[in-house]
Every structure is written in C-alpha cells, then in structure tokens.
Write a protein that binds this DNA or RNA. Structure first.
Length: 231
DNA sequence: TGCCAGGCCGGGT
DNA sequence: ACCCGGCATGGC
C-alpha cells in the first residue's frame, strides 16, 4: 500500500515546514484533560475562552469542578459550545480523577498506572471516546499513544495512506506500526497533522493546493471512486 | 450567510 | 455492525 517509511517521511517534511510544535497549550495535566473535553468538535479559540472563564473562577482542579454547581459550570464553559453536555462530561471525568488522585492538578497517581488500564477506564466514562482518551493519555500523562483526529484521518485518506473505511483503531494501528514508540514524536507529529489540516486540508476544500505532504506523497487524490478502485 | 471547528452518544435499521 | 440526528457557540 505504501513504503514503510512514508509516515516518517511525512513527519520530516512537516517538521521542516512548520518547526516543532511542542504542543497542547495548557499549564497543568488537569488543564489538558479539561481541554480534551472542551475541544470536542470545537474550534480551539472557543475552548480558550471557556478555559479562561474556568481559570478566573479558580476551577482548574478536579476538586473544584466536582464541587461547583452544575448550572454555574455550564455558564463558564458556554463559549466552547455543547455547554450542557460538556459541563456534565467535565463533572464525570473530574469525579473519576478526584477519586484516583492525591494531586488533582498534576495527576501523578495516574502517571503510575498502565496505559491500557487508564484507557479502558476513560472509555467507560460517558462522554469520553477514543480521541479524548488518547489526548489525555498522551498530552497529560505522557503515555505512548498516537492521537487520531479528524484532520489526521482526512489527510491520510486523501493521500491514500489508509483505506477509506478505516475506523479510529485501524488508523491508529496503521500509524504506530510504522513509527518508533516515542512520546515526543507522537506529540509533535499529531500537532503537525493539525497544523497541516488547518492550513491545507479543511473539510470542504476541494483540493489541497500547495500541500507540503504532496512533496513525499504525490498529489492528493480526492476522487472517492478513483481512490476506491486503486485500493 | 452558511459552513466549519482538535467528538461522542443513543436510537434505529 | 453501521448510519444518523442531536448537541451549540463563535469566526470567517
């Protein structure tokens, strides 16, 4: 389907194009987890406004999220959209964290647990799916999981590096099978995908003009029928 | 103005 | 096992 080093080749091109992203804007592991919920299907600029509200209300710890009145929490996270759902999801996640962690901001107890255990626990919580769980695992707890998001799937799909009907787990397996298990690489590579997506691979853009990935992958093939036939 | 953004859930086939 | 509607705000 592709050369074994395609993914690393893409990474090198993106790294050269955008530089190290040293990504996920947050000051603490708990703030990462908050952001992972708030950014679900939502522009990061809106998430920033919600986090600023939470910060002003001193709600950037699990204990404070657990304690705050639900209606008040809804008001704080409103700019992030889906505010009723997200307020509930923040409560559920914070209750789980508060029960597991002595330090409800740095989450050191979680860092000592195995990746698979935490992932299963997170996925059992209502409102946490694979991407949110993996974002927490990678960016808050520094566990080696590759985060697959809409940009990643779209970019790889348009370049024919994954099958059109690939699901989240399929894509994750495909990527990690061709990369060294390296937390820093996983962090930066995912950030590069997002940067590339924002600039060149939006949902309804008919063609990725000047897409840097085309240097190693060739021109993107956006015709679904042709793509189907070629696989 | 409508479309999109760093998803996930629940109910129906 | 898929497919789909609902969830919601703010920026271009």
């Amino acid at each position: 389907m592709h050369q074994d080093n395609d993914f690393l080749a893409i990474y090198r091109v993106l790294l050269d194009e955008f530089g190290h992203r040293s990504w996920w804007p947050a000051e603490t592991p708990f703030e990462v987890t908050i952001g992972a919920i708030l950014t679900q299907n939502t522009n990061w600029a809106n998430v920033e406004a919600a986090i600023a509200n939470l910060k002003a209300a001193h709600c950037l710890s699990a204990q404070r999220i657990v304690a705050i009145d639900l209606k008040e929490l809804q008001k704080l996270v409103r700019p992030a959209g889906y505010f009723r759902q997200k307020a509930k999801r923040l409560k559920i996640l914070s209750e789980w964290i508060y029960e597991k962690c002595d330090d409800d901001v740095n989450l050191d107890n979680l860092k000592g647990m195995t990746l698979d255990f935490i992932r299963e626990e997170l996925l059992s919580l209502k409102g946490i799916g694979p991407e949110t769980a993996d974002s927490i695992l990678l960016y808050a707890l520094h566990k080696p999981v590759f985060v697959v998001d809409a940009y990643t799937a779209r970019i790889l799909g348009r370049h024919g590096l994954i099958f059109p009907d690939s699901g989240y787990d399929d894509i994750q397996v495909e990527i990690t099978a061709h990369l060294p298990e390296d937390v820093d690489l996983f962090c930066d590579f995912h950030a590069q995908f997002v940067e590339l997506g924002k600039r060149f691979c939006k949902k309804n853009s008919p063609r990725c003009e000047k897409c840097p990935a085309a240097v190693v992958l060739g021109e993107p093939d956006l015709d679904p029928l042709r793509l189907q036939n070629s696989l």
